[in-house]
């Protein structure tokens, strides 16, 4: 549980949106590396030890995707080797492949942290004002899925108790058993849905002027953090739009001459991806400090 989690959903959502979008926009290897490291750090912080599995898988994906690019893209001057009927495998294409693979891995890792921190509850809350009906539908689906899953389990148990378990037997009979389960679940679901609809209307659903319960409060510290996030994102975006971070890959790699804006953007990006870590460390120090005073 990181203390970053305790911020208003808007703040955390903006953070993830920002780092994911910037992560796929920067083509500069330096920025890619920063994004990748930031995402991996956050992923490990939120997922702990079990996060290592995904990280391992992503390492393999990184290698495969990097090697794949030169096979489809023979551009670039530095030929490492040729294969097949005289097809080149170039260094430039390999580096470009590594950058795009890093991009993919970065996005996946950010999403992993996103899923840990942005629960369905927070997402439906965020969109509750913008899209109340859709948000309510999603809320209901999130409520029904575990209910149905449990019902399905109990149906399966009930059928196992009379020797109609679908675990064994030929494929066709297993498929047929699945169909029967689905059909029973549907009957049951529709019957209870009518009760749900009654319960909603009985409690005034459909009256004009529906409001939303504010489960989260937007406080000063949320405002401050959101402002910082926006500032850092804006700096990166300006650098991106003006081409300060642009890189040439083909025919030869040229990083161009780093300008002030480039360094500023890099600093901003580093700060941005490390925000959750900063916050955790800050709270940690604060906690130590206040403890020592007690």
């Amino acid at each position: 549980m990181s203390s970053f989690e305790s911020f208003h959903p808007l703040v955390t959502f903006f953070f993830f949106a920002s780092v994911i979008v910037l992560g796929v926009c920067f083509l500069n290897p330096l920025f890619s590396a920063v994004g990748l490291l930031g995402a991996a750090l956050m992923h490990l912080r939120t997922r702990g030890k079990e996060g290592l599995r995904l990280l391992g898988g992503m390492a393999i994906a990184f290698v495969v995707l990097s090697l794949l690019n030169p096979l489809f893209n023979p551009a670039g001057d530095t030929v490492l080797f040729t294969y097949g009927p005289n097809r080149p495998f170039t260094l430039q294409s390999l580096v470009f492949g590594m950058v795009t693979a890093a991009m993919f891995v970065t996005v996946i890792l950010w999403f992993s942290s996103f899923n840990a921190i942005m629960t369905g509850e927070k997402i439906t809350y965020l969109f509750g004002r913008m899209a109340p009906s859709l948000s309510l539908t999603l809320t209901m689906v999130l409520r029904l899925v575990p209910t149905y899953r449990r019902k399905l389990r109990s149906i399966m148990d009930a059928r196992a108790g009379i020797g109609k378990s679908g675990a064994t037997g030929p494929l066709t009979s297993r498929v047929r058993n699945g169909g029967a389960l689905l059909s029973l679940l549907a009957t049951w679901a529709f019957e209870s849905a009518l009760v749900t609809a009654d319960s909603m209307r009985s409690r005034g659903f459909g009256l004009a002027g529906r409001t939303c319960f504010a489960a989260y409060r937007f406080t000063l510290r949320d405002g401050v953090l959101l402002a910082i996030e926006m500032l850092l994102t804006a700096l990166c975006a300006v650098a991106l739009m003006t081409g300060a971070t642009a890189v040439e890959y083909f025919p030869v790699i040229s990083l161009g001459c780093p300008t002030v804006l480039f360094w500023l953007a890099l600093l901003s990006y580093v700060s941005l991806v490390l925000i959750p870590t900063f916050i955790d460390c800050w709270e940690h120090i604060l906690w130590r400090f206040s403890l020592s005073r007690i």
């Binding site: 369905g120 509850e121 309510l136 809320t139 209901m140 999130l142 409520r143 209910t147 019957e191 209870s192 849905a193 009760v195 749900t196 319960s199 909603m200 319960f213 489960a215």
Partner: peptide, 13 residues
């Protein structure tokens, strides 16, 4: 029916 009357996924909601 205790189950079917509930609309949302969280107690507070």
């Amino acid at each position: 029916n205790p189950d079917a009357q509930i609309v949302t996924d969280k107690v507070w909601h």
